[in-house]
Amino acid sequence: MKNAVEIKNIRKVYKVGDEKVIALNDVSLEIKAGEICCFLGTSGSGKSTLLNLMAGLEKPTRGTIKINGKNVEKMNEKKLAKFRQEHIGFIFQSYNLLPSLTALENVSLPLTFRGIKKKVREQISMDMLEAVGLKKYICHKPTQMSGGQQQRVGIARAFVSKPPIIFADEPTGNLDSKTTHEVMQLMLKIAKENQQTLVIVTHDKSIAEYADKIVYILDGNIEKIEEK
């Protein structure tokens, strides 16, 4: 099985005043295509920094990051934006839905950026909302939905264009335990059905249990890796 992600000797240093803060220190990792991988660590461990580097949202101080065979650290902003549109979906802890748009319009956004015609993208988005159990809420705006429903909209938006890789940053951080279980089961089901790679960042060990591979991160280093 080919690798969806290849990280080699990644180091990330931030300058805070006159001090240097090492967020990641010589991290190397491979994630196979179709794998459910979890980065597990406490706040400040470097796990979210690693996700941001993989997504091209930040540049490493040194090292290489390949996503689907492409070096993201070498891309300029224009190429990165196009690459993310075609290869990556995002799920956020705070949902990041646009408040002025309906559920259908929020889910349609990735398809809009790809230039898909309105009638086609609305049908695809409606099918996706039905798949996450929100058929009755297509015309609702975020303020008219619960946290769990908003996160389902976020999941539908991330998966709607069927990107090869989904990055989920603390995707259940704002949800109760019952809704957390439902949301995790939903993400895994869709990812497995579409043979997508799912990378989850969390501090919650119970979330990590859903993964095929758990990468423990501590003080900017990979402490250990567990594979099921």
Results as ranks from 00 to 15, higher is better:
Phe90Glu: 02
Lys79His: 12
Leu111His: 05
Leu40Ser: 06
Leu50Arg: 00
Met128Glu: 11
Ile91Arg: 00
Arg157Asn: 15
Ile116Tyr: 06
Ser177Gly: 11
Asn71Tyr: 10
Leu104Thr: 03
Ile124Lys: 13
Lys79Phe: 04
Leu129Lys: 11
Ile165Asn: 00
Pro60Arg: 13
Lys59Phe: 15
Gly154Gln: 05
Gln123Met: 12
Ser177Tyr: 10
Ile91Glu: 04
Leu50Pro: 00
Thr42Leu: 11
Leu40Pro: 08
Gly41Asn: 14
Phe83Lys: 01
Asn76Glu: 13
Gln144Pro: 04
Gly44Lys: 03
Asn71Thr: 12
Gly41Pro: 06
Asn52Trp: 00
His140Asp: 05
Ser100Gln: 13
Phe113Gln: 10
Arg114Gln: 15
Glu73Leu: 10
Ala55Gln: 07
Ile165Gln: 07
Pro163Ala: 01
Gly154Asp: 04
Lys119Thr: 06
Phe92Trp: 05
Asn106His: 08
Glu130Cys: 08
Ile138Lys: 10
Lys59Val: 09
Asn106Trp: 03
Gly63Lys: 09
Arg114Cys: 04
Thr42Ile: 07
Pro60Lys: 10
Leu129Cys: 06
Val132Ala: 00
Leu40Phe: 05
Ser48Val: 09
Pro163Met: 01
Arg152Asp: 03
Ile155Thr: 13
Asn71Met: 13
Met126Ser: 11
His140Met: 07
Ala168Arg: 10
Leu51Phe: 01
Arg152Trp: 06
Asn96Pro: 00
Val107Lys: 09
Phe90Thr: 02
Lys117Ala: 15
Thr61Leu: 02
Gln123Ser: 11
Gly44Phe: 13
Ile88Val: 13
Ala158Tyr: 04
Val107Thr: 15
Lys117Gly: 11
Ile138Gln: 09
Ile116Phe: 05
Lys70Cys: 12
Leu97Met: 06
Lys59His: 14
Ile155Ala: 12
Leu57Phe: 15
Thr49Asn: 01
